[in-house]
Design a binder for these strands. Structure first.
Lengths: 179, 179
DNA sequence: CTTCAATTGGACTTATTGGTCCATTATGCA
DNA sequence: TGCATAATGGACCAATAAGTCCAATTGAAG
């Protein structure tokens, strides 16, 4: 619910109704709404990374990147509500809650790490040129994904996402050594 | 205020206090809060496009694109609060207000049009290859900008924005004919 | 100056919010 | 079985939200 409608549009009464849990339980397990939101961030980080398996941990070739792209786009098409859980929370909270901002930055960082790991393996194997920077390439990949997701959510079309990820994969491909 | 903290975190009392205007004036000029928000979207669209002048309407060469990039990054560094006014509103409202979503999609579309116009001129002049698609290139550029802005806002660093736009400009450069 | 409509101030209403409280119920342990 | 502690339900509270209302004020036209 927080993913779909945002923190501020999701009241604790909504959470109670949807979960069949009373307010005292909520306040027994969470200090306040902010604490619950922080937990939601952790949860969504896991969800986002988990949903990209098994691709995400094996992105060490161009074909693997393309398969990841296809899975990602398919997932986005199937989703009932658009956008990225982390991205939406980041957009809403980054300016207003420093603890939330930090956790979201960590979430993005973990995501980038996974991408970077695969690219680093490509570099070690010599598939990626010596001048290629896995860290920056991963960051560019992630930016493309987030921007694509936001535009796709707004235009209600998967095209922006597809085009953005394709661009990012092309960008990686530029650094691939000729076989 | 709506740009920095979101629609839901900005109360009409806040607006009254900041503008020195009474509630009856607010409701005299706007049917309700939603109507005001719709007007804010229109206003922010103008602001975003206006802030990119004079570059935005002359992006018809690689060097112009790079100058635009530099101006954009400088603007973002100087801004007190990160992110994109359109992107933030889109993230918050796309799922919950169809009129708002439409206007935001229009705003993005206008932005893409400006980018596309420059690329089309490059293509007409033969600077861009025949196979290049100005529409898709512009969409990729915009996705990179939005994703970069979101990650920069979250990580409080301008690096993601720089890397993302550089990637997108490289992507355009791939379609440039050798001189 | 008078008049009448448009504009304005701000008190007010109602609904909803996050959060508190305490009596009641369940649970684990001797 | 009995006791102490933890977990639970739901009434309750104060603050804040959007939105309403009407009396007071302004301004232009005759």
């Amino acid at each position: 619910m927080i993913y779909a409608h945002g923190v501020e549009r999701t009241s604790l009464d909504d959470v109670m109704a949807a979960s069949g849990v009373s307010k005292s339980q909520l306040y027994h397990y969470f200090a306040d709404k902010d604490a619950l939101v922080l937990e939601v961030i952790a949860r969504q980080t896991e969800r986002v990374l988990g949903a990209q398996r098994p691709h995400l941990d094996a992105l060490d070739s161009l074909s693997a990147l393309k398969a990841w792209r296809d899975g990602f786009v398919r997932l986005n098409k199937a989703a009932q509500c658009g956008g990225c859980p982390l991205g939406s929370l980041a957009s809403e909270l980054a300016n207003d809650s420093e603890p939330a901002r930090k956790r979201l930055a960590d979430g993005f960082s973990m995501w980038r790490d996974r991408l970077e790991n695969g690219l680093s393996r490509m570099k070690e194997r010599g598939e990626l040129g010596a001048s290629a920077d896995p860290h920056d390439l991963a960051l560019a990949l992630l930016s493309a994904v987030e921007g694509g997701l936001l535009l796709s959510k707004t235009t209600q079309s998967s095209r922006p996402l597809e085009i953005a990820i394709d661009m990012a994969i092309d960008h990686v491909a530029r650094n691939v050594n000729a076989p």
